[in-house]
Design a binder for these strands. Sequence first.
DNA 1: TGACGATAGATGCATCTGCATCTACATGAA
DNA 2: TTCATGTAGATGCAGATGCATCTATCGTCA
Lengths: 152, 152
Amino acid sequence: MTEKATPSPEAITAWARLMRVSRQLVENAEDALKAGSLPPLAWYDVLHELAEAGEGGLRPFQLIERTLFAQYNISRLLARLEADGLVEKLKVADDGRGQTIRVTAKGRETRRRMWAVYGRSIAELVGAKLSADELKMMSALLGRLRDPPVLD
Amino acid sequence: MTEKATPSPEAITAWARLMRVSRQLVENAEDALKAGSLPPLAWYDVLHELAEAGEGGLRPFQLIERTLFAQYNISRLLARLEADGLVEKLKVADDGRGQTIRVTAKGRETRRRMWAVYGRSIAELVGAKLSADELKMMSALLGRLRDPPVLD
DNA sequence: TGACGATAGATGCATCTGCATCTACATGAA
DNA sequence: TTCATGTAGATGCAGATGCATCTATCGTCA
C-alpha cells in the first residue's frame, strides 16, 4: 500500500473516534471499579493473565509481552500486587535473574470481584450498543490494526 | 436492550481488541512525536481545538468538554502551553472568574509541525491498513459506542 | 576458563496525574 | 443588600509514570 504523509479524511475520522471512544470507555470502566472500591484496570489485566496461566505462573517479561505495559511499570505493579498479597514471587530454578509470578487465592478472589463490575461495564458500554454481528465486524476491523494484525 | 451483568463473548473480544489497539496506536504515535522532539499528543489535542476555534479562542471549560481531559489536567496543561508561548490567556470581560485561551502564532506553528508527524502516523497506522469503506464502517460502529452516540 | 555483550528485573529522579480542596466571582432568593 | 449556593479555575499533596541507569545473571565465543 502506498505510503502517504497525509491521511485520508476517512482515516482521520476513524482515528479520532477510536481515540475518543477508547478514552471514554476506559474512564467509565475505571469509574465503575472505583465506585466499588476495587483496584484499577491495570491490576485486572495482570491478574487475568496470571489466572489464565494457572499454577505455573508467568515470568514478568511474559506479562510485558501480553499486556503492553512497560517493564518498569510491570515491576512496580507487581510489587504493589505482592504487597497486597494478590500475587507471589517465586525464585525460578534455571534462571537466577528471573522469578515466576503466581496469583494467590486472594488474587483470584479479587479478580472475581473485579470481573463482576468490569464485566457489567463491558456489557453495558459495548454489548448493549451493538449486535453480535456488529461486534464481530468491529473486532475484525480492529484486529487488522493490531501489530501484528489478527486475521480472523 | 436487556441489561446483562455478563457480557457476551463477542462483546468481550471487541472490548479487548479496542483496549489493546488503542493503547498500541497511542504509544506508536507518541513515540513518533518523541522521535521528532515534539510535544505529546495531549498538546496537539488542545492546540487543534484552539486552532479550530480561531481568534475568539475558547474558555478552559469548553476545552474540557471537547477533549475529555479532567479540569485540573487542562488547568496545568494550559499553564505549560502558556509557559512555552503556545497559547495566551486573556481576561474575559463579562465573567470575572473566567479567561479565554487563544493559540499564538508559535502555537499554530508547533501544531503544524506536530501534524506532519502525527498525520503520518495516522496514515501509516490506520489509513494504510483499511480501505476507505472499511474505515467508514469502523467510524460508524465506534460512533455508536460514544456517549452520546454519533449516528451517521 | 574468562571476558563480553545480552537479558531480567529494580530503582533514583523528575514529571505528571488524581483527589480533594481552595479562592474568586456569579447568580438568585429573601 | 445580603446570604447561600453554584461555577470557573488553581493548587497542595500523595501516588503513578517515564526515562535512564544499575545490578545480577546468562550465554557465547576466544
